[in-house]
């Protein structure tokens, strides 16, 4: 059942630090089981490099089950590689064949500066959440959980948006380096729910304006949706756009003078 792939050529971006200019380096993996995950293939390569006394390739990864959002990588020009709705950590070598040449690059965006090799800094996402991606609720003061019934379709669609893992593939895949899918997914998650209504418009306003400080603009290519490992739909972008417009209008009338 398990086959072995032979002679995989890897062109991997190496960059010593943020200031370094970086370059592609070519490596060869002589043989690897097709049961191996893509990251295990890189682990294996790193083992070889360490054995040869060379520095291991730096790349972000953690849970390896597609939920933590730590892994990244532009693989052959696609964020998270060639398998749809799959994060790099769940991509397996059986998607490739012997003799394949695989190009691996870090995600590139001004807001995602390269730390080293394939690892980038995605803190800009945290800044967006900090600006309004929450529902203010003081610990201990919450009413009974069943006090507000939430229609199942609403809960389901909030959940669809909340599934975002914050990996940054949307930004990486976007030809404009825009973060609208990430930002809008969080806006949609919280703005759809009854609990989120009190801060709905303030949230949309501050998150979108914070996003503007770091990222490009959405021109509706749809690449983000195609790259998203959680298949979050660009419908959420439309929702956030509408809420932002309403926020601008409503806020001036009622709450912006605070």
């Amino acid at each position: 059942m398990s086959n072995h792939l032979k002679d995989i050529i890897l062109k991997i971006w190496r960059q010593n630090g943020p200031q370094d200019s970086g370059r592609f380096e070519t490596y060869k993996v002589d043989e690897i089981s097709d049961e191996a995950s893509f990251l295990e293939m890189l682990d294996y390569l790193n083992e070889q490099l360490i054995t040869d006394g060379k520095e291991a390739i730096v790349f972000d990864h953690d849970c390896r089950e597609g939920i933590c959002g730590t892994c990244s990588l532009m693989i052959n020009g696609q964020a998270h590689g060639p398998e749809r709705s799959t994060a790099t950590c769940q991509l397996h070598m059986r998607k490739f064949s012997s003799g394949a040449e695989i190009v691996i690059e870090p995600w590139r965006a001004a807001a995602f500066p390269i730390i080293k090799d394939l690892m980038v800094d995605r803190s800009a996402f945290d800044r967006i959440i900090e600006s309004g991606g929450f529902i203010t609720s003081v610990t201990g003061g919450a009413p009974d959980a069943n006090l507000i019934p939430i229609p199942k379709p609403v809960a389901d669609s909030a959940m669809d948006s909340a599934a975002c893992i914050g990996c940054g593939a949307c930004v990486a895949a976007c030809p404009n380096g825009a973060a609208n899918l990430f930002t809008s997914a969080k806006i949609a998650h919280l703005n759809l729910l009854p609990q989120g209504q009190a801060e709905r418009y303030k949230r949309a306003e501050s998150m979108i304006e914070k996003m503007d400080e770091y990222f490009g603009s959405c021109t509706n290519h749809g690449e983000c949706e195609a790259a998203c490992p959680k298949e979050i739909s660009i419908d959420v972008i439309a929702l956030a756009n509408a809420d932002y417009r309403k926020a601008k209008l409503k806020n001036r009338k009622f709450i912006s003078r605070i």
Binding site: I135, G141, A142, A145, A155, A158, A162, L190, L193, Q195
Partner: peptide, 9 residues
């Protein structure tokens, strides 16, 4: 729930 965790309904 108050924080907006979308539990199944």
């Amino acid at each position: 729930v108050a924080q907006g965790v979308p539990f199944a309904r």
